[in-house]
Amino acid sequence: MKLLLRNIFKNFGEKEVLKGISFSAESGRAFGLLGRNGAGKTTTIRILMDVFGADAGEISIDGKPVDYKNIRIGYLPEERGLYPKKKIIDQLTYFAELNGMKRQEAVKAADYWLGRLGMEEHRNKRLDTLSKGNQQKIQLVTALAHNPQIVILDEPFSGLDPVNAMLLKDVVKEEIAKGKIVLFSSHQMNYIEEFCDRIAILNDGVAAIEGDIHDIKRNYVRDKLVVRSEAAQNIRQDLGSCCKLKEDGSLLVQLSSPDEKQAMMQRLAQTYDLDEIKVFEPSLNDIFVEYAGDQAKEAAV
């Protein structure tokens, strides 16, 4: 199954929120939807879930327009919240029923997931008697109980302790292994790198970059070198403003073009006693900072 969003536009009054977003995600793989606050992630998710329509553009599954009556989507919103005063099993069944399950099925599914997340003892309690982390696990059940084909998780790891984070990781991996499309939205890049094969970084209403995470890294312009040396001070004096000291004590050397790479490496190796010299491979965090916002622009200036 392949989900494709093409050229999605959305305005709210004067404000253009989405200006032609496109990306695709496949089943059995996780997709990372990244972007700073206000970049249009939630609007994109809401259009994808048919809360409101797009002004222009199309959403298709396997080339056909999405039939919302027959597609099941599970959603863990960033703003968590259920009914605080109602019994947990009642609300879980309610949401599973709203998402198309029959009552018996819904109760069964809710019980399965409560068991899977180690929450069965809380089945008949009121939600507000639970800790924040446990409430979040209940919220996760609402996203998964109705066995959705597309799972959208918005900041799923925020507020979880390491043990629960591990449990959630396992669950997410299971869902991916079941052949579902998992859409991740998060600012915690380490989790994105761990799960996602593909990402899209939204900036100012467009996908600034979209594609396979490894390709993105490989295609990153190889015009920076990382140098580690005892003579860092001398190297900085020698190279001037194109050499910066990183937080970990290594040096980042900006080349004027990638072609210069070989010459610079040789020159430094011959002149100084180096511990390490390599081409700079960006982390997802670096890529995010570069594509997602004006901080990158400011840094360039």
Binding site: P77, E79, Y83
Partner: peptide, 15 residues
């Protein structure tokens, strides 16, 4: 209440 407890976030995408 549904809105302030943010249950609405989930409701609006479910119904």
């Amino acid at each position: 209440t549904e809105k302030s407890s943010r249950a609405m976030e989930l409701l609006i995408t479910s119904a």
